[in-house]
Design a protein around this nucleic acid. Structure first.
Lengths: 240, 240
DNA sequence: CGCAAGTTTGACGTACATCAAGTAGTGTGG
DNA sequence: CCACACTACTTGATGTACGTCAAACTTGCG
């Protein structure tokens, strides 16, 4: 129906190293954060080339990951090639939380990515004694659940235009710059995330351009010119 | 687009009582389970009439709930009346886990229901010391996340027939009897859960009946005559 | 029994998918 | 630095699965 399986699984260039990593842990935290320290001590840095898999559906879920740079997609491919992306993971976000014995989804790098991996067993052991780590895990799971539930509403009940506006706004909410967005993913990725086809996504973007709601450069840089209008569309007021 | 807001919010008949409740806690547990005991001591029994709200979207999320009898739906209604159901909660299941300050969804009784409510504050306090409770909460969140992610794949990439087969099988997986299902929810609820209309759901069921895959009595009792065929359809092989 | 709510079935419309060219970006080797 | 090729994106024409509208039928409660 959509997405051919044109993504050859490239062997990951796993530059493992058990070295300190000078980046915020958990949420935004300053240095000397006890949680950060605890996590840092068990983290392993990994690098992945574009389209390389971090883990595959069915793999035993032994790690949780955090993105340092690049971007990750979490997806499932049906037998006939239809693909659904469950989540995009951007720098600072965690992924691989869908542990129930084994991963239910595949995680792949959208662009060359650097990732820190935390062994689940150690994480759980630390959580038993360190309340802050326990709270962090719970909060990550809650946020993930909440985001996924919103995804469900969007997929179940929104039109193509609404989905697209929703997507742009959700990326906006996760970027530093609130008007100039960098979209690391392809149109196909966006389509598979929104439950649409690549053509419908493209047409939707073109229409936003024509309506001067956005400006696109190089097809991966988007400037939001009228956030209010996009919000109206996303929430179903944009009766056109 | 779908679902009118024909569901008048009925004041809940809250028969609160801080009394022991002779039912399995956590998973299936025998009596004298420490987790069960801990939960039981902080649980309050509540009763809700059909269509009564347990909590509304935007309410402060101060409790987690467990269904004893009846069934609950977790849903969101868009401004123009479109409704998406995120989850059906059956006896033994927990709901209200979507706590992030406030509930993102409304929870309503599908049929008259009895529910136990656990104050979030106390639950968190217990979890800090009792590892078993902590694990239970984590496991509930993980299961919820996993189920919601599957919902996303279904909504994003499956056809009406596939959704329906998937739905019947998912209910099967949660019932004791693997062939004779009791569906407490209406066709409208099913439609709003699957991202379809009531008519499409009805037509799909009729087609399954014609193909002798299921037998329906009274429109709320369904017998699965050919689980293998339904599984094939749900997974996308049912090219018809 | 009788009415209202819920469900099924039919006829028709439409938003999005599919199929099919084109056009821009992106990278590579001369 | 440009020419080539390759991939990604856009645009158009057409098809279809599902939505909408409308009317019968069934169910279950008062």
């Amino acid at each position: 129906m959509t997405a051919m399986l044109q993504i050859a699984p490239i062997a990951a260039e796993k530059l493992s190293a058990r070295m300190p990593w000078p980046v915020l842990e958990g949420g935004r935290s300053e240095t000397a954060d006890p949680v950060a320290a605890a996590l840092q001590s068990i983290g392993t840095v990994l690098k992945f080339k574009r389209n390389a898999a971090v883990f595959n559906e069915g793999d035993p879920a032994r790690h949780v990951y955090k993105v340092i740079s690049g971007a990750i997609r979490t997806c499932r491919v049906l037998m006939d090639g239809r693909r659904q992306i469950a989540d995009f993971t951007l720098p600072g976000d965690f992924f691989g939380l869908d542990w129930q014995g084994e991963h239910g989804f595949t995680a792949e790098a959208i662009a060359d990515a650097v990732v820190v991996s935390y062994p689940r067993s150690q994480l759980e052991r630390i959580a038993e004694t360190q309340v802050a780590v326990q709270k962090l895990l719970m909060s990550l799971l809650c946020k993930g659940l909440s985001a996924t539930q919103n995804h469900v509403v969007m997929l179940g009940r929104q039109t193509a235009q609404e989905r697209l506006a929703w997507f742009l706004l959700s990326i906006m909410g996760r970027s530093d710059d609130d008007t100039n967005l960098e979209l690391p993913m392809s149109r196909l990725d966006i389509a598979d995330y929104l439950g649409l086809t690549i053509e419908t996504v493209s047409r939707g973007i073109s229409q936003f351009k024509r309506r001067r709601l956005i400006t696109v450069s190089g097809s991966h840089k988007v400037a939001l010119n009228n956030v209010a209008a996009l919000e109206a569309i996303a929430s179903g007021e944009g009766a056109l």
